[in-house]
Design a protein around this nucleic acid. Structure first.
Length: 439
RNA sequence: CGGAGUGUGGCUCAGUCUGGUAGAGCACCGCGUUCGGGACGCGGGGGUCGCAGGUUCGAAUCCUGCCACUCCGACCA
């Protein structure tokens, strides 16, 4: 992609609406544009990042045995009347009428729809377990949207729903999601901590929130430092096997956010030098809720004895659009965004410092093609700007590498490679520069 | 939803108190000089001053109503 033909409207100053750094940087880097309170258009760069996060989430869900579907944004109120939530859900639900005066709503979540799909087709315990997920736009009419995409009204969310014969099987489904989530955040270059969450009237210990560490995060977390060190289990675990040990290894260590924190317990469970407190952002929530929806909505399968059994369900959410902001909160500096390579909109920018100079053009084109051939998703900065302006805007939008081609270097057969995250640069012949970037 | 605040060109803001022909910087267009970290000079384009009503010879400015957005609080992926 040639930046001279691209659409990347960067701003030198942040619009005054934006308070937190990720929101400011998303506006300045031209990732999003606000259309209304908590509602955003996604511009090319922002959309690329969003799609990359979405794809990582999708791959890890698939790996863990979940199956993707796509449910509608508009849902029938009647389904929500079945579960009893149509009246229970407050002003946050956007309610709409169609031309036939039928009550619709813009889905804030999809338990009802997925349960309806499930019950229509799945009739036997032999078909369990099932885990259906979708990545879809949701709407919650927040009283007070803020923090840009971190707390918008419209947001992209991955939500998965598991169906099992009993609580024990549901725990196995829960465990798969628990570990899949850790893998997702690790692939996104984030440090995530699973903290025990309030299970409300359901009870039990099967609800966790996933908090990514960021100094500017809105939540406080307290955790045993070994938990952070332990990290993700990796993709190669036996997803069909017994995952309980891997989960317990992580859940037995202390971790809590504001609402569940107990300082006395923290101090008794973690030695003084193992106590970590940090700021973070909640980017995922997994929950076992048993028969809460399956019972009122009559989602049953025939058990081994031929009798109907109400299925046990769980739901598992990842805030995909929120993660865009979350990653920026966790990874930026004074100059702008620093994208982890897994989600960067472009892998490398080939910076032509003198467009129109045929020798420079030629080397830049050559570098661009070589990087494209190697799958590095390069862009070519052939904009007619001064070098400083190019560097500043490329730093701002956070592309991980800059391969700088200028007249001086071309004259003695070299280019410069700059790494965004560290600022380190080296001057090298092109073939070696390519090796550095592709290493 | 309670409290506070802001709406002036694409962005940041001045002008409002004390009514009198709408400003600056950035961005944009043209020309020239520049060209390795958001250049400089000269010239230029662009604004129903959130909307509606009122007061006045005259309203961005005063009054009334409405709308939008932001911040603090209670609530959430």
């Amino acid at each position: 992609m040639r930046l001279s033909r691209y659409f990347m409207p960067t701003l030198r100053e942040a619009p005054s609406d934006a308070q937190i750094v990720s929101h400011q940087l998303m506006l300045r880097a031209g990732l999003i544009r606000q259309e209304a309170a908590g509602i955003y258009a996604w511009l090319p760069l922002g959309l690329k990042v969003l799609k990359k996060i979405e794809q990582v989430v999708r791959e890890e869900m698939d790996r863990a045995g979940a199956v993707e579907i796509l449910m509608p944004t508009l849902q029938l109120a009647d389904l929500w009347r079945e579960s009893g939530r149509y009246d229970a859900y407050g002003e946050e639900m956007l309610r709409i009428k169609d031309r036939h005066e039928r009550d619709l709503l813009y889905g804030p979540t999809a338990e009802e729809v997925v349960t309806d799909i499930f019950r229509a087709y799945v009739k036997s315990y032999k078909d369990l377990p099932k885990n259906l997920y979708n990545i879809q736009w949701k709407f919650r009419d927040e009283r007070r949207p803020r923090f840009g995409v971190m707390r918008g009204r419209e947001f992209l969310m991955k939500d998965a729903y598991s169906f099992d014969l009993d609580a024990e099987a549901a725990r196995r489904s829960y465990n798969r999601m628990f570990l899949a989530y850790l893998n997702i955040y690790a692939r996104l270059g984030l440090k995530a901590i699973p903290v025990r969450a309030d299970t409300g009237p359901i009870g039990g210990d099967l609800s966790h929130e996933f908090i990514i560490l960021a100094d500017t995060g809105e939540s406080q977390v307290w955790a045993h430092s070994d938990l952070v060190e332990m990290g993700a289990p990796g993709p190669d675990i036996d997803w069909e096997g017994d995952l309980q040990p891997l989960v317990e290894q992580r859940t037995r260590l202390y971790a809590a956010s504001d609402e569940m924190h107990d300082q006395a317990r923290f101090e008794s469970e973690a030695a003084e030098d193992k106590r970590m407190t940090a700021r973070g952002i909640e980017v995922g929530h997994i929950f076992y809720f048993g028969e809460k929806y399956s019972k009122p909505m009559n989602a049953k399968v025939a058990g081994p004895d031929g009798k109907d059994v109400v299925v046990h369900m769980g739901s598992y959410g990842v805030g995909v659009s929120r993660l865009v902001g979350g990653i920026i909160e966790a990874s930026h500096d004074e100059a702008g965004i620093i994208w982890p390579e897994a989600v960067a909109p472009f892998g490398v920018a080939v910076v032509n410092l003198r467009p129109g100079d045929s020798a420079v053009d030629e080397v830049a084109e050559q570098a661009y093609r070589a990087l494209a051939d190697r799958g590095k998703e390069p862009c070519l900065d052939d904009r007619d700007d001064r070098p400083g302006a190019k560097f500043a805007s490329l730093d701002l939008v956070g592309i991980p590498w800059q391969l700088i081609v200028g007249p001086k270097g071309v004259a003695d057969g070299t280019v410069e490679v700059k790494r965004r995250a560290t600022g380190e640069r080296q001057t090298l012949p092109l073939d070696q520069a390519l090796k550095v970037i592709c290493a």
